[in-house]
């Protein structure tokens, strides 16, 4: 059980409610090279079963993160996945290099949903080759024993192709999905509800999209560990991701609603697994792909070609 990037603050806020060291890992918000003030407000709009946000990666920059935030997490022994975001391949690489000798980094997550300044602002995750380039350079700059996780966006033509490029580029695991881009217009003010216009949609509204992405990628790349996320609010939701092929599940927007969401969902998931006779989570991973008695078939059913 992880926190989703950008949903757990610095860790201190959640630590008031539960022990962050009991998390599978705490995923930081995306850290950037320089401090960022983010987007103007309003940054958030509630939608049915969802939440649109355009925070704009507000953060103190990597130096302040390394002196103020990471040591706090490391002192407590929390497993920390540091999410990094940048506008160029060079920025990602520089961030990875800066993190390489910092103690307490369990893994590096590459937020590929940042606009690529060198490619007219197209986000890295939309294009397999630029995503792979980022992943490869981060992989090269990161210590061999620190896994690199590529975080993918769902609003791409072919998520399997992007996933495959990232794995070929050296990603040890994949995290999906980042928030699909959405928008909402306030009919009273007759203006976009968010100052930034568009924003990322999260919450249960996107869960079916996320499960589909996990399903497709697990079917195509069964050996690659997947961290599933997108609208997980209960143990049942988490199990859905696991059955679709995720070997870990992250909780995002649910934390805004219920600060105790992580320990609660973990407990619920454990109960569900026990009820169903599983000894280990690993036995349930991707099980929906293999209905009992049918053997390892059926995985082609939902590939891109048949949709």
């Amino acid at each position: 059980m992880l926190t989703a990037s950008g949903c757990g603050g610095t860790g201190r806020e959640l630590a008031q409610f539960f022990d962050v060291t009991r998390l599978g890992a705490f995923v930081t918000r995306s850290i950037t090279m320089a401090p960022r003030a983010g987007r103007p407000t309003p940054r958030m709009a509630e939608t049915p079963s969802g939440l649109l946000n355009a925070v704009g990666l507000q953060g103190p920059g990597v130096e302040a993160f390394l002196t103020q935030e990471l040591p706090w997490l490391a002192e407590r022994g929390a497993r920390t996945v540091v999410s990094i975001g940048g506008g160029t391949v060079a920025e990602y690489t520089a961030l990875a290099r800066r993190l390489a000798d910092a103690p307490g980094v369990t893994a590096v997550e590459v937020n590929l949903s940042c606009p690529n300044i060198e490619d007219r602002g197209r986000v890295f995750a939309r294009d397999g080759s630029s995503a792979a380039e980022v992943v490869a350079s981060v992989r090269a700059a990161t210590r061999y024993d620190v896994p690199v996780i590529a975080k993918l966006a769902s609003d791409v033509a072919d998520i399997v192709a992007v996933a495959r490029s990232c794995v070929d580029g050296g990603a040890d695991a994949l995290a999906m999905i980042n928030t699909p881009v959405g928008m909402s217009v306030d009919v009273d003010s007759m203006r976009p509800a968010l100052a930034a216009g568009t924003g990322g949609l999260s919450g249960p509204a996107i869960r079916p999209i996320a499960v589909r992405c996990v399903w497709q990628v697990h079917a195509a790349l069964p050996g690659v560990p997947i961290i599933g996320m997108g609208g997980v609010t209960s143990g049942r939701d988490a199990l859905e991701f696991v059955l679709a092929g995720a070997c870990a599940v992250a909780v995002g927007s649910a934390l805004f609603h219920d600060p105790y969401a992580c320990p609660r969902i973990q407990r619920e998931l454990e109960e569900l697994l026990t009820e169903r006779g599983f000894d280990r989570l690993a036995d349930a991973v991707g099980l929906a792909h293999h209905p009992p008695g049918s053997g390892p078939r059926g995985r082609t059913d939902l590939e891109e070609s048949s949709l």
Binding site: T41, R43, M44, F256, P259
Partner: peptide, 16 residues
Amino acid sequence: EEAMACGIGVCMTCVL
């Protein structure tokens, strides 16, 4: 009074 989503400091939407 700012619009907030979480109130506990994690969502970063109520900034000024």
